[in-house]
């Protein structure tokens, strides 16, 4: 039995708009094992991105505890959280979020600037990350000179550059055509199986969710369904994901 990497204990997240209190997550508890590839699904407003942000340490719960490894991220100070993120989390965004004035190499090197690595070590590590995403020939290209799929691969290289245990992906294929989206999913699958990364991915797309090994379905801030894949490949399967997404 794998040990849990992420433990979410009775987490409530509320937003106050004017005088109205909006409950986005309502006493949610969840554990994610080390090395799991989890897809978070659910309709808009179900709280899946909020949950992802809480796990990644860029937001804080109103109540409840979130532990990642031995660190209780829900109680860390702003400064400690920033440091923790730089060491433990790799981010993959829907719109890639590359810095447009920096080259592919420089974008991947960014999180490494927060480490104590020497310039030569940073170079080696950034180049390795870009080799993993098969973009060694695009080091000096700026984001505007790359296709959407290539931009997302650079973003993935940036996410894995510091070798974090946890990758969080928010709709990683949401802005891509189906072919590029497929390439990204293959890449995430590889990072999971070959490099042992724990991946938590928010998606609307049953095809993307089908790649995951566990599917967590949220609705109105509560856990509606939690399905672990069986079968040879260990994947959920498109039909099953679509059915879950449709709430059947």
């Amino acid at each position: 039995m794998a040990e849990p990497l992420i433990r979410i204990e009775n987490v409530v997240k509320q937003y106050t708009r004017d005088t109205q209190v909006l409950t986005v997550l309502d006493g949610l508890s969840l554990e994610v094992d080390k090395g799991e590839f989890v897809a978070l699904m659910g309709p808009s407003g179900s709280g899946k991105t909020t949950l992802l942000n809480l796990i990644a340490g860029i937001d804080r719960p109103t109540s409840g505890r979130i532990l990642v490894g031995a660190d209780e991220v829900s109680s860390m100070s702003e400064g400690a959280l920033a440091k923790w993120r730089s060491e433990n989390v790799g981010f993959i965004f829907q719109l890639y979020n590359l810095v447009p004035v920096l080259t592919a190499f420089e974008n991947v090197e960014l999180p490494l600037l927060l480490t104590r690595l020497s310039k030569a070590e940073r170079k080696k590590q950034a180049e390795t990350a870009l080799a993993v995403v098969a973009l060694s020939d695009r080091l000096d290209h700026y984001p505007r000179q790359l296709s959407g799929g290539q931009e997302q691969r650079v973003a993935i290289a940036r996410a894995i550059a510091t070798d974090p245990a946890l990758l969080v992906a928010d709709e990683p294929t949401g802005d891509l055509d189906s072919k590029s989206g497929e390439e990204i999913l293959v890449l995430l699958e590889r990072l999971h199986s070959e490099f042992g990364k724990t991946i938590v991915m928010v998606t609307h797309d049953p095809k993307a969710a089908a790649r995951a090994h566990r599917l967590v379905h949220l609705d109105k801030g509560v856990l509606k369904e939690d399905v672990r894949a069986k079968g040879e490949k260990g994947e959920i399967g498109v039909a099953a994901a679509a059915a879950i997404a449709a709430g059947k």
Partner: peptide, 14 residues
């Protein structure tokens, strides 16, 4: 704005 938020998510301090 989004770029700055990304930098902060990556771990750059305020």
């Amino acid at each position: 704005t989004r770029e700055i938020a990304t930098l902060r998510a990556l771990g750059f301090s305020r």
